[in-house]
Design a protein around this nucleic acid. Structure first.
Lengths: 205, 205
DNA sequence: GTCTATACTTCGATAGAC
DNA sequence: GTCTATCGAAGTATAGAC
């Protein structure tokens, strides 16, 4: 109950190094591999520093998540402003690193209640933003949104993209993926025209 | 290196109790919560019994997985023989307990290489079986399988069903789910007629 | 065939030194 | 403001008693 315990600065390089290490560990070995000792080892630091900068492991996870969630919304805005927003969103949803990390956080949220609340809220915000963007785009293209509601397009497009990534990354399974991608991209082509290349911004992880 | 170490019988009630406890733990708290101590506690047994019946934790996971995988193939066969196979498969894929458990195993496979191989092989087998079944059904209904290949229908239908369950179970998020389910079920109705009720076999978990 | 006593490792977290 | 020494709890796994 010693209320005087202190905590490190948000701008510390050490802190950033710990967040980076956390992310790498989650991607390579899953959230369960994120222990104070292993995070520290990855960053070349002492385990106790994790507790100095983040106090509890949940705080560490939340800090790592917030960093990515913020970046995710930025990328989404970029995609929605691209010349071909649907293609850009499709490509964004298929980014393996991004999706793998997201799914790792979802799995984490599944059994850590304090984290769940924040991730769920963030996911709702993201979905609402996508839906709004897709709705505008579909209207511009003259798509019948009674028959193809923006929210349905959003959930299905992002859902399929995510499942493909999960299967590929987690199981190394890709049976039927090529055909499914081709199918979705035919629909995209019908609506938005064929892909115009120039998807640069995605390369930078 | 003592090669003489013994192991419990496959028919032991204790063994079954441990497998049941493992499954419950995975569902309620995720695979990371499956430790020899906690599994044993759930089953009202001593932790060392886990190692007697399964030797390593990976063996425990694999045994738990095999039990469900077998059952999954049986359920699939039943669905494919139902009067409305597509509806039956859709319902099967949307079973929350089943899907949640599957995703937990996938997450586990993602960072335990020895387990990954077996789960991936099993997933491939399952997908092939679904694809074959769907192909037969689509042919019977006279669907143009050049335009709507069975493998694409399979991946999309099951993928969407899974993503919805994940979002609901892991995050408690359901935004857009109702609309998406309605959309898919409209397509099902177009192909297979409206749902004829009588999906009994699904109630038993 | 079934279970327990026990060894050894790794975990999260705090109090306190620099 | 930054980091380390250290504790108590929990983890996997084995050898051996019943």
């Amino acid at each position: 109950m010693s209320t005087t315990r202190r905590i490190g600065t948000e701008t510390s390089q050490t802190r950033t190094a710990l967040l980076d290490a956390t992310e790498r560990l989650m991607l390579e070995e899953g959230y369960a591999a994120v222990t104070s000792r292993r995070v520290a080892a990855r960053a070349g630091l002492k385990p106790q520093l994790v507790h100095y900068y983040f106090r509890t492991m949940d705080d560490l996870f939340l800090a790592a998540y917030r960093r990515r969630a913020e970046q995710g919304l930025e990328r989404l805005d970029q995609a929605l402003e691209a010349p071909q927003p649907l293609w850009a969103m499709w490509d964004l949803s298929r980014d393996p690193r991004r999706t793998a990390l997201t799914m790792e956080f979802v799995a984490l949220a599944n059994h850590r209640k304090p984290i769940r609340a924040e991730i769920a809220a963030s996911a709702e915000r993201y979905r609402a933003a996508v839906r709004a963007g897709v709705d505008t785009v579909l209207e511009r293209y003259g798509v019948d949104r009674r028959r193809y509601p923006a929210i349905v397009c959003t959930v299905m497009m992002m859902g399929v993209a995510q499942i493909l990534v999960i299967e590929e990354e987690s199981l190394g399974m890709a049976t039927g993926h090529g055909e499914t991608v081709a199918f979705v991209e035919q629909r995209l082509t019908e609506i938005e025209g064929s892909r115009q290349a120039a998807a640069d911004a995605l390369a930078s992880a």
